[in-house]
Design a binder for these strands. Structure first.
Length: 722
RNA sequence: GGGCAAUUAGCUCAGUUGGUUAGAGCGCUGCAUUCACAUUGCAGAGGUCACUGGUUCGAACCCAGUAUUGCCCACCA
């Protein structure tokens, strides 16, 4: 059949893409094949309960890496999965409930969990379909979900092991607590925002009647939790009254004046009230001076029974107003001044974080024993080059981060997630940790009165174990073969949340780095360089784009003109340009196909002998050079540059120059020139295939009709080398 | 307060580690249509490479500093 009538003038992505994907998937080529070098990439799991967003479209980089590896004959294994995204999903789900006039408290705990599970599973099929439509060559026969029983078991077993090794402990300290979401957070989940506030000066009279001390505070409502007033040891203004007692306003309680280095004599009045239960500094001062701690704010952000009756049950803000009014009335308020400070807020809802004394499970990141020093183990892996970081500058970011690493709070007061396998004894209050099974008795005193910890793990604790937990889920031979993974490709924004934790947990728990390289891409922004967010109405939905311009166009637009770690603007005109490129490839292919319709020469899979045409010879040389250049860039992780190079080469050298110059040869019977042309096209399609898989595969299928020796799919064709 | 990045054409950005006249896409100007592709081709205009010094035979690139923007980290009550 003549190609001319067979092939439409324009690349028809709409009708071509889905059948091609089905063909790939059914071929089994997405699964690791043969016995080449193992090359695994774990898909950073998208949130199962959300639709795909433009950030997920950046998985294109992984697809490019995996498709090239596959063509290079490696055992390419790209592992798909979805994330239960504990807290994130619970927030979304609760918002949905709120719209229905319900809350999670309308469910019992299991009922709620089941409802979220159903909701999540429901959405999961949507996101899988969306990932497929992006052309991603993921091995769907090995799909994981972060709450798969085996993964859950692995996470609990790790917790037990870390606990037994002394790296997990029950920390009695202040935690970052969001009173709206009713859960604690790690330091990472707290955002600091500059806020203009007031600094009040309060008069605390000395009990011996010899005077008073004026303290400066931004939080007068915590006054009932004060257990001391602190001044700097060298501050001569106060040296004579250190160790004297003062009477706490609005109460009958007396507290001491103490001296501590922490106090900045130049700030405020040089005297600060110490509220160990509600301030991180004060907590430390209290532990140095052995001061008691009195909690006056409860988990809902209201004053509790430790406050005088008049204030109990008031939320922080009204309580503050009431207390200030009373202090003023009784002459304790000396004055106030404006004051800018950075206030800790919940990264999700913006509620001011309340530091509260709640015991939680912590992972100890430093230890005197080098074999247990997680922070140093992680550092060493990167510093020594066992893990390559791309771009390089993030290596410094990583190392600096590890230097400042602090113990990690693993507990979340959330219902959706993996329950922490710990039980508290009603008798001795000690904790018994297992790998999941309910313990028969308390490890400490043998009592049978055990209560399970109601908390769940921080999602990142489980996701940080995915590199091995997922492989183990598939079977021990997978861990054996594919660990460590070839590369972890993700956004630079989660270097600290996720990548760092995967590294040190992988090294400690499995004795080897989880991946050999980390590739960090930048964030996608709108044309003005602003972050995309639903509330700004500047989001680009990847599926709308692919429907309009084709998947290949979006894929090119995402990687070309971008370098790792650098944020990148995305807008429609840019994508349109790459739609034109898809079409250019299509038409170049169409032209070659129609020109060679009657071709009966040697296969296109090998370069021809020296041809009769000088132009054909130049073409072969040129394609060889282009192949070298593309490989050189790709070997240096320069995916964007390689893409741009191939774009430019194909369009302006192959098409504009060689196709034009070879037109005369195609009219005649210069078989050598024709073979050179067919060969060159095949090579270029292969080089382009990881970037624009659909249009290249579509053409390849037609090219095979001229040359049955070509592989069945370009997806598994031999990668061009020189 | 500390750290990291960015600053190159009207716009969005590359620039392969110091080497001729600094590149691309979009936009703009002019020309071309029975030609694989107008989702095209050819030609062209457009840049003091943020600024100031320094190193060098030679700097967009290296060094020191300045400015602006963005991001990350940080417990000043």
């Amino acid at each position: 059949m003549p190609f001319e009538s067979l092939l439409p003038k324009n690349w028809d992505h709409e009708s071509e893409e889905a059948p091609l994907y089905a063909k790939w998937e059914h071929s089994g080529g997405f699964q690791p094949q043969g016995d080449g070098e193992p090359f695994a990439i774990l898909l950073p799991p998208p949130n199962a309960s959300e639709a795909i967003h433009i950030g997920n479209a950046m998985y294109t980089i992984q697809d490019i890496l995996i498709r090239r590896a596959r063509m290079q004959g490696k055992r390419a294994f790209w592992i798909p999965g979805t994330d239960h995204a504990g807290f994130e999903t619970q927030v979304v789900f609760e918002k949905k409930l709120e719209k229905e006039g319900k809350s999670r408290f309308d469910f019992d705990r299991q009922g709620f969990y089941d409802a979220v599970m159903a909701y999540t599973k429901d959405n999961q099929s949507t996101i899988i379909a969306q990932l497929k439509s992006m052309g991603f060559s993921l091995d769907w026969s090995h799909l994981y979900f972060t709450l798969d029983p085996k993964i859950v078991d692995a996470v609990k077993a790790s917790f037990k092991r870390l606990h037994d090794d002394g790296l997990i402990y029950r920390g009695e300290r202040l935690v970052n607590y969001c009173t709206k979401h009713q859960t604690a957070f790690s330091d990472l989940e707290v955002e600091h925002t500059e806020t203009e506030g007031l600094l009040w000066k309060l008069r605390y009279p000395l009990t011996d009647g010899s005077g008073e001390i004026i303290v400066a505070t931004t939080r007068p409502e915590t006054l009932f939790g004060d257990t001391a007033v602190a001044v700097h040891p060298d501050d001569t203004r106060y040296s004579s009254i250190v160790d004297k007692m003062v009477k706490l306003p609005l109460t009958e309680r007396t507290i001491p004046i103490i001296a501590d280095q922490m106090v900045d004599p130049k700030f405020g009045t040089g005297a600060v009230k110490i509220t160990p239960a509600h301030d991180l500094h004060d907590f430390e001062v209290a532990s140095r001076h052995d001061l008691p701690s009195i909690q006056v704010i409860d988990l809902r952000g209201k004053l509790n029974d430790n406050a005088p009756e008049a204030y109990r049950g008031l939320k922080v803000k009204p309580a503050r107003e009431q207390i200030l009014a009373d202090l003023t009335a009784q002459g304790f308020l000396v004055g106030s001044s404006t004051h800018t400070s950075s206030v800790a807020t919940c990264y999700k809802c913006g509620t001011v974080i309340e530091p509260l004394p709640i015991p939680q499970w912590y992972l100890k990141v430093r230890d005197a024993d080098p074999a247990k020093n997680l922070a140093e183990l992680g550092k060493e892996a990167v510093a020594s080059g066992k893990i390559t970081v791309v771009p390089e500058r993030f290596q410094t970011v990583f190392l600096n981060w590890m230097d400042g690493l602090r113990d990690w709070n693993l507990s979340r007061q959330v219902w959706w997630g993996i329950p922490i396998p710990a039980w508290q004894c009603a008798q001795c209050h000690d904790w018994t940790v297992t790998a999941g099974d309910t313990p028969p008795r308390c490890n400490q005193c043998g009592s049978h009165e055990l209560t399970p910890d109601p908390d769940v793990f921080d999602t990142w604790f489980s996701s940080s174990q995915l590199p091995y937990a997922v492989l183990e889920e598939f079977g021990p031979e997978f861990l054996e073969t594919f660990y460590p993974h070839a590369v972890m490709e993700t956004g630079h924004d989660i270097l600290t949340w996720w990548v760092a934790r995967m590294i040190y947990l992988g090294i400690y728990l499995r004795g080897e780095v989880p991946f050999k390289a980390v590739y960090l891409h930048g964030m996608i922004t709108d044309r003005q360089g602003k972050k995309m967010s639903k509330s700004k109405f500047n989001v680009i939905d990847p599926l709308t784009i692919t429907a309009k311009y084709g998947t290949d166009a979006l894929r090119m637009a995402l990687v070309v003109g971008n370098s790792p770690g650098q944020s990148m603007a995305m807008y429609e005109e840019k994508i349109r340009g790459f739609r034109n490129f898809s079409n250019k490839i299509w038409n170049a292919g169409r032209f070659v196909l129609t020109s060679l319709e009657a071709y009966a020469g040697p296969s296109f899979s090998e370069p021809s002998e020296a041809g009769q045409s000088a132009v054909a010879d130049q073409l072969l040389t040129s394609v060889t050079e282009a192949t070298t250049e593309a490989n050189r860039l790709l070997d240096q992780w320069k995916i964007g540059q390689a893409g741009e190079f191939l774009y430019d080469y194909f369009w302006h050298t192959f098409c504009d120059r060689f196709l034009e110059e070879l037109k005369p040869a195609l009219q005649g019977s210069d078989t050598a020139a024709q073979q050179a042309l067919g060969y060159s096209l095949a090579q270029l399609l292969k080089l382009l295939h990881p970037y624009v898989p659909y249009v290249t595969e579509a053409l390849w299928q037609h090219l095979r009709q001229l040359d049955p020796q070509l592989s069945e799919l370009i997806m598994v064709a031999d990668w061009p080398t020189t």
